[in-house]
Structure formats: structure tokens, C-alpha cells
């Protein structure tokens, strides 16, 4: 399930700031660990004193030099549940100087996706913009984002994860379902949504041109053709070399298994609930809190406008570049009753 509460950007900032903080020294680390009751051996102490802390700080400075423009460059916040996948990649794997890229290209935050039920996705366009059609390549690429290098990648471990997510079923909707509504909703879904969003649908897993879907374009444009060329040089001279990355012209039509657990919606998580998504863009919430995990069964998504939600989550402003909540007009013209039927059915996916 997408980690819609995780504030990854601030986690990075915390690790970076803490590592470079003057108070973080070998002595303080040892004292804190021992204060917590851990035993620190003499060899561990020696290693910490001799080079490990120096190395931590050097590596952190090097990382800061590379991705500083993303974390501290005045870009829109990722917020909870989102990550910019490909811009850190440009700096960490290829050492591009991000300061020289066009400012708009550095805006690429998008929702964490769900990872269940991968088998039927093989061959579909994966990632929000559909830039790869191989599950394994997508996994390997994601592991680079998490910090491995082509030399340190643990392929056996990745294979275990592959095997697990290959057939992992999406979680069942945990609340009651109105079966009458759901049955009516199914007909609407079959007629209006299935072509793009059901497994086996004619256009499911293909890329929908940005002009048609008309959702926020920043994430699409942050992934560039120049990056595909660089990615094809990863895992060089091995069976793992990337050969499937492609620059697309839109966003991929996603299968909707477990969609109830994948809120907020759209690639950038700009629409908090399914009912809001079925609303005309002008009427969708302009600002809301994301990252609060209490469920809203009426609208299907997480609660986003109560004081508790505001306190627990990060504030999401749809008027900021990259956060646009326009586009995907499908279903917005339905009468309210049919919309309720439809989202009742979508709880069962």
C-alpha cells in the first residue's frame, strides 16, 4: 500500500542536517548508545573514532552538493506520501548539476504507488508517465533510488521482493459495502471506466496523451529524453542493463485494484477522494491535508479537512506548480446518485 503518511523529503533533510550537526560526534554517538543500554565494543568505538564519523560527514556533504537544489532550492514541498523519483536520480547516479536544469524540470513530485499484484502489470507502461514496461527493470531502478549502486544491488533479495509482490493480493475494503449500489456502479464502471482501468481493458496500461488527460504536466516533463540515454548506461555490460526506458507523451492508464487504499488520487495526489475526482476540477478541493490515515467512507479516501487531519498531515495547495488538480474529466458529468453507485463499486476493486 502506498505510504501516504511518509514525509520522505523531511526525512532526507533530517538525516542530512543531523549528520552534519556539530553535536553528532563519535563520543556523542557512543554515549547515546550506551545511555540507551547498548553495548559498544572497543573495536566499534575505534572504528567510529578513526574514520566512520568523518566518512559519514564527507558522504553527506557530497550528497548535499548533489541533491541540495532539490531539498533546499525553494521548490514546492513533496509533502507526505510523495516523492520526486527522477530528479534525485539525475544528480545521484549521473552527477548532473541540477542548478543548470530549467527550474520547471526540477518539479516532479508524485504519489507513492501501490506495489501489489504485479504479475498482470508486466508489459504495461509502469511509473506514472509509463516510462518503462518491465516490472523487473522498474524494481531495479527503484532500488537505485533507494541508494544501491549497480555494483551493490542484491539481485537475490530483489528477486524475493519480486516474487512476493508478483501475486500479492490488494487488501479488501475493510468497511461495509452497499451491494445494491455497488451492482449498479459496476455497470457504470464497465461502460465508462473499464476500457482504460480494468485488467484486459483495451487501453489499460497504455499511455494517454497529456492533451487528452490534461492533468498536471510537471511530473511528465521532469522525466526527460536525455535521462533515458543515461539510464541505458546503468548496469552496463550485464544482463540487467536498462533497455526499456522510454520518454512518453502522457500518463499511463492504471489498473485500479485496491484503489480505495490508494488515495489521494491522480499521479500527484492532488485530489483527496474518489468522489472529489468525479467532480468538475473547478469544484475539487483547492487545499487539503494529506497524510492523515482516518478513512472517509462516504467520499472514499482519507479524511482531509478536519482539525485532526490538518494537524497530522501536510498541507497541500493545488495552486502550486506541480500540484495542479485539473484534468481527468471522466465521470464528472454523471448525476450524483450514479457517482455514489460508482464509488461504491470501486470499493470492491
Amino acid at each position: 500500500m502506498p505510504a501516504h503518511q511518509l514525509d520522505l523529503e523531511n526525512f532526507f533533510r533530517f538525516v542530512e542536517d543531523a549528520s552534519l550537526d556539530d553535536r553528532v560526534t563519535a563520543d556523542s554517538v557512543i554515549a547515546t548508545a550506551e545511555g540507551m543500554g547498548d553495548h559498544v565494543s572497543i573495536i566499534q568505538k575505534l572504528i567510529l573514532h578513526l574514520f566512520l564519523m568523518d566518512r559519514l560527514k564527507l558522504v553527506t556533504v557530497s550528497l548535499q552538493n548533489r541533491i541540495g537544489p532539490l531539498l533546499n532550492g525553494g521548490l514546492p514541498e513533496w509533502g507526505r506520501g510523495r516523492v520526486d523519483t527522477f530528479n534525485p536520480y539525475k544528480a545521484i547516479q549521473f552527477n548532473w548539476n541540477l542548478k543548470l536544469l530549467p527550474h520547471d524540470e526540477l518539479i516532479g513530485a508524485a504519489d507513492f504507488p501501490s506495489l501489489w499484484n504485479q504479475q498482470p502489470r508486466e508489459g504495461m507502461h509502469l511509473h506514472w508517465d509509463g516510462n518503462n514496461t518491465s516490472v523487473d527493470e522498474r524494481n531495479l531502478s527503484a532500488s537505485l533510488g533507494a541508494g544501491v549502486t549497480p555494483v551493490t544491488a542484491d539481485h537475490a533479495s530483489l528477486q524475493r521482493i519480486h516474487d512476493w509482490i508478483w501475486t500479492l493480493p490488494p487488501p479488501k475494503y475493510p468497511f461495509a459495502i452497499d451491494h445494491g449500489r455497488s451492482a449498479r456502479g459496476k455497470d457504470i464502471f464497465t461502460q465508462a471506466c473499464a476500457e482504460c482501468h480494468s485488467f484486459g481493458g483495451r487501453k489499460t496500461g497504455t499511455v494517454e496523451n497529456i492533451a487528452t488527460i490534461n492533468t498536471d504536466p510537471y511530473r511528465l516533463n521532469s522525466y526527460t529524453y536525455a535521462l533515458t540515454g543515461n539510464q541505458a548506461q546503468l548496469y552496463p555490460d550485464s544482463q540487467y542493463r536498462f533497455t526499456h526506458f522510454t520518454k512518453t507523451d502522457g500518463y499511463a492508464n492504471q489498473p485500479l485494484d485496491g484503489v480505495w487504499a490508494r488515495a489521494p488520487y491522480l499521479h500527484n495526489g492532488s485530489v483527496p477522494t474518489l468522489l472529489d475526482l468525479l467532480t468538475d476540477p473547478a469544484e475539487r478541493p483547492k487545499q487539503f491535508a494529506r497524510g492523515y490515515d482516518v478513512y472517509n467512507q462516504q467520499k472514499v479516501g482519507f479524511v482531509y479537512d478536519t482539525p485532526q487531519a490538518k494537524q497530522a498531515g501536510t498541507w497541500y495547495d493545488t495552486t502550486i506548480p506541480g500540484n495542479g488538480n485539473g484534468g481527468h474529466l471522466f465521470g464528472t458529468q454523471l448525476p450524483l446518485d450514479q457517482k455514489l453507485d460508482l464509488i461504491e463499486f470501486m470499493k470492491t476493486l
Binding site: K90, G229, A232, T243, T246, K247
Partner: peptide
């Protein structure tokens, strides 16, 4: 990757106008 400062733009060899067909190293 070692000398990005000697390229006119970010992008690796693509910054020198080289053309990578997708999937080619």
C-alpha cells in the same frame, strides 16, 4: 559523471549533442 563541470549542460554525453536511441548504451 566525474567531470560534469566540463559539460555545457547537465545530461551526460547528451549535453554534447550526442543522440541516444532508447535502450542503447
Amino acid at each position: 559523471r566525474v567531470f560534469p563541470d566540463k559539460l555545457p549542460n547537465p545530461g551526460g554525453y547528451a549535453a554534447l549533442g550526442m543522440v541516444f536511441a532508447e535502450g542503447r548504451d
